[in-house]
Amino acid sequence: MSRSGGVCVFSERRDVSLELLTIGRTLAGDDVLISIAVGPDGEATAREQIARGASGAFVVEPDEESRRSEVQVEALRQVLAKRGPEIVLVGATAHGTEIASRLAQREEVGCASECTKLAHQDGKLLVERTCLGRFVARQVIETRPAIATVQPRRFEPPERDEDRSGRLWRLNIEARETRTQTVDTRHREKSSVRIDKADVVVGIGRGLRSKDDLKMIEELARALGAVVGASRPLTDDLQWLPPDVKVGLSGVTVKPKLYIACGISGQIEHHVGMRESGVVIAINSDPSAPIMQQADYSIAGDLHEVVPALIRAIEQTAAT
């Protein structure tokens, strides 16, 4: 285990760790691609990672401890010391971003956050990411290792192949005591659908008067075969919808054929999450809301009137 080079991937979420293997393999080429597995089924996760193309996987033990941030940062440090990868990719969840940042500071190296594109250039890692609102930055990471966090859902996981084999290592971590103690955990509801894969998304924002109005929105979504997405105030503040349907800079990027924004103002942080959509429709009572400039077609009006009228119009047009 002394050869250095290659790529190392980590996410506390199994699905995201598999996505990282796709871009990880592209960047590693014929070189090694190492993954790190944590969580209650660490070993099963590691085997899955190998079946999806990892050359080898580290299982962090003991299982129960492997969810802690301190343990994960320490595990990554040990893997870096053992394997000396050129590139470390981490899933850009809130948790993953914290892990990557702490690791990068301990190692005193650069880390580019939430990359959407990654490639080699002159032996260095070249990335693209959103910055300054609606702009995109091309950046190069000059340190070794180069650490980058990768936007979840940017890449599809590689095909599974049972015949692939790879080494499996165990990593027993004894991390420092923490001075923080979790006293309560409440799991939040998850969306039953992948909003980033939907062909039609109905996005809703603070223009919605009450949680009851969700019924009307769901009816519109049914008529259109759409999935419902939302702005940050609805997912994080009011918590009317699960956080995984948040569209925007701190949420998901959607690229449906059709995006219908209802009662969303179109602040830049929301806009960057939906600008890759095919056709954009805006329904907003304020004709000067920024969303009107981001739309192909807009209706200036109260969504509580427009949405029911639209549902009726769709049913009528479908019938003729």
């Binding site: 990068a104 190296v109 650069g110 880390c111 580019a112 070249l126 910055c131 300054l132 609606r134 702009f135 995109v136 930055a137 091309r138 950046q139 190069v140 990471i141 000059e142 340190t143 180069a146 600008r275 954009v280 004709p287 009107m292 400039q293 981001q294 739309a295 192909d296 077609y297 807009s298 209706i299 200036a300 009006g301 109260d302 009137e305 427009v306 009228a309 639209l310 009726r312 119009a313 009528q316 047009t317």
Partner: peptide
Amino acid sequence: GVKTLEVYAPREERRRVSLPGDSVEEMAA
């Protein structure tokens, strides 16, 4: 450790048509 090479605005073109109609019904139709 991270150097920015270039910053650009991705192209985005929208039609920006405000749908005509004297009533909500007409605009929705």
